[in-house]
Design a protein around this nucleic acid. Structure first.
Lengths: 249, 249
DNA sequence: TTGTTTTATTGATCCAGGTCAATGCATTAA
DNA sequence: TTAATGCATTGACCTGGATCAATAAAACAA
C-alpha cells in the first residue's frame, strides 16, 4: 500500500481542521473561492445569517434528487459530490463532480425544481442557501447578485468544455483532461496538484467521460506503464503533467 | 421542390412583418419569451433604452468570437445562430443553436471574455445588451437580476440534458431528440411544430450531436423510409411525433 | 476472523458508427 | 446557360471503444 493518502489529506480532513466546520464565512478557509468573495463586511454578515451550516452527508447519501422539493442551493464545504441526470430506462449520466467552494443545484433555479440528483462521494458537508431568502437578500445587495450570475456563468462555460470533451475527444484525451481538471481544482484549494485521492469510483469517472469502466481501467494502467501517473486504488500521483497536458488535445 | 417553405415562414420572415425589427420591447412579439418578461412598465422602459437594436447579420457572419473583446450579451431577434467551442488543432464542437428570444454569450460573463464563437445561420438580427450597463441597471431592478439568473439556469439545465445525449444516447436517439427539440422551440414561437425549415447544415447537426455527417444523412433517410418524417433538403415535416418521441430514450 | 459484496483489472471478441470513396444535387457566380 | 463549388446521399469497409467473461482485490458485514 502506497503512502499517498498521508501526503495529501482528503477534503474531509480539512473540515476537521476547521473545528467541525462551524466557522462563519469571515473565518472560512474557502472564502476566496466562495460566494461571499467581494461582499462588503456588512453584507457578508447578512449573508452569513441565512446560511444553514454543518449539514453532513456520508458516502452515497443523497443531497437532493429530482423528487426533492426545491428550496435551496448548496455550496460544498468539505468532501465532494457528484450530480447525475437519468432517463426513465435507468441510464444515468454523471454531469459533474463538486469540490469545496463549488455550487450544487444551480440548474434548479429556472424550473424551481431539481433537474438532477446529487450524492456525496465521501463524508461531506455543505452550506445550505435557502433560495427565496437568498433572492430577497439580493434585492438590496447587488454585489451578491453579480457573484451569483458569475457562478452560473462559470458553470456554463465548464459545461461547454465538457460538451467538447464528450463530442470530440478520444478516450485517452478524455481521461488526461479529467485528471488535470481534478489536479487543478485540488491546487486551487491549497492541496498538492501532484498527489491526491480520487473520491469517485472508476465507474463514476467512466460514466462522466462517456466511456466504459474497462476503458478507464485500461487507460489508467497504460498511463502508469508510460510513466505519466502512478495509481493505486484511489491514490493518484501525477508524474509527468506536461506529457499529460499534451495528451489533452 | 416541396412547398413546405411557404407553409411556415423562416424566422427571418417574421422580422419583416415586424417593420424591419425596430419595435420596442413593449410591442415585440417575442415579449413573453424574452428578458423583459415580468418587469414593471417603468423598468421595462429603462431596459428598453439600453438595448441596441436592429443589428443585422447575414448567413455565416460571426456575431462574436473568442477574439472579440467582451462587451455585450445578445438576444436573438430574428433568424438563428450557432455557437462553437474549438481546440487549437481545429476541432470544433457546436455547443448550441439559438432562436428568437434566446440569449447568446452568457458563458462569457464569468471570465468577462467570450469562451465560444457565435455565427449567424441565416439572415438574422439581435438585440445587443451592453453588459456593464445591464449590470448597473440590475442594481436597482431586482426583477431583472432574477430574470437573468433564471435564463442562465435554464441554459445550464439544457446543457446537462445535452451531456446525457452526448454521453449516453445512440445515434438514432440523438437525432430524434434533436428534431423534437427544434420542433418544440418553433412551436413556442408560434410556428408549426410539424413543418419547418432547418437553418443549419447536416454538418452542423452532426457535429452538435457528436456524430458523422454520413450518419445523420443515413438516419434522415431511414426516418423518412419509416414514415416518421418527410425531408427535402432543409424542409422538414414531422409525420409521426409520437413514434419519434418513443425513439428519444 | 471469515464470508459476502462491490469494485477494479485484464483478455478476447464484437459492433455502432466512423472513415473513405464515388456520385448526385443545390446554390452561386459570371 | 454553364461552370464551379460546396453540401448531401449512399455504399463499402474499418476501427475505437463497447461488451462479455473471468479473476483478483478491496470494502464491508457479521
Amino acid at each position: 500500500m502506497t503512502q499517498l493518502g498521508n501526503v495529501t489529506p482528503l477534503f474531509q480532513d480539512l473540515a476537521k481542521v476547521e473545528h467541525e466546520h462551524n466557522l462563519a464565512c469571515q473565518e472560512c478557509s474557502l472564502y476566496r473561492l466562495c460566494l461571499p468573495l467581494g461582499l462588503h463586511n456588512n453584507d457578508l454578515i447578512q449573508l452569513d445569517k441565512i446560511i444553514k451550516r454543518s449539514q453532513s452527508y456520508s458516502r452515497g447519501q443523497p443531497l437532493f434528487s429530482t423528487q426533492t422539493p426545491f428550496n435551496s442551493i448548496y455550496v460544498v464545504r468539505s468532501g465532494s459530490f457528484k450530480t447525475t441526470v437519468s432517463a426513465v430506462d435507468g441510464r444515468e449520466q454523471v454531469t459533474g463532480f463538486y469540490f469545496p467552494g463549488e455550487f450544487v443545484g444551480l440548474d434548479a433555479i429556472y424550473e424551481q425544481a431539481y433537474r438532477s440528483n446529487a450524492k456525496a462521494l465521501e463524508s461531506s458537508s455543505v452550506c445550505e442557501l435557502p433560495f427565496d431568502i437568498l433572492q430577497e437578500l439580493g434585492t438590496n445587495m447587488p454585489q451578491l447578485q453579480v457573484q451569483m450570475m458569475s457562478r452560473l456563468s462559470k458553470e456554463l462555460s465548464g459545461d461547454k468544455s465538457l460538451m467538447f470533451l464528450l463530442g470530440k475527444k478520444t478516450a485517452e484525451e478524455k481521461l488526461a483532461t479529467f485528471l488535470l481538471s481534478i489536479s487543478r481544482r485540488f491546487q486551487d484549494r491549497g492541496f498538492s496538484a501532484r498527489e491526491f485521492q480520487l473520491s469517485m469510483s472508476r465507474g463514476d469517472i467512466a460514466n462522466h467521460l462517456g466511456l466504459a469502466v474497462e476503458t478507464v481501467s485500461r487507460l489508467f494502467s497504460r498511463f502508469q506503464d508510460e510513466g505519466l501517473i502512478e495509481i493505486h486504488n484511489k491514490s493518484i500521483s501525477i508524474r509527468d503533467s506536461e506529457k499529460l497536458k499534451a495528451l489533452c488535445g
